[in-house]
């Protein structure tokens, strides 16, 4: 998705993992994905640089759709679809 599309995207669930270091945000994403339905969108907030690369790879392995990342001041908003 484009950055503009991501800006207007409404997540079904948002998990704030900004207080954790690797692998905290990835584990937060794994927990949260179990709490949404197929087709729904999860947003992960992470201040960890590695997570923005980990989550797309994780999505690819687990069969989820990585939608994109928005860079905010000091953290990332990472979107994926179950």
């Amino acid at each position: 998705m484009t950055q503009e599309e991501l800006l207007t995207l409404k997540a079904d669930k948002t998990v704030d993992a900004r207080g954790t270091s690797c692998p905290g945000p990835l584990l937060a994403a794994k927990k949260a994905i179990g709490e949404i339905e197929k087709g729904q969108i999860l947003e992960v907030l992470s201040a960890d640089e590695g997570t923005r690369r980990d989550i797309p790879k994780w999505c690819n392995k687990k069969g989820f759709e990585y939608l994109g990342t928005l860079e905010e001041s000091g953290y990332y908003r990472i979107f994926l679809k179950k």
Binding site: C22, P23, G24, L26, L27, A29, K30, W58, K61, K62
Partner: peptide, 11 residues
């Protein structure tokens, strides 16, 4: 523990 976290994420 970090590696275990990665393994857990991937089931």
């Amino acid at each position: 523990g970090v590696i275990l976290g990665g393994a857990a994420a991937e089931d």
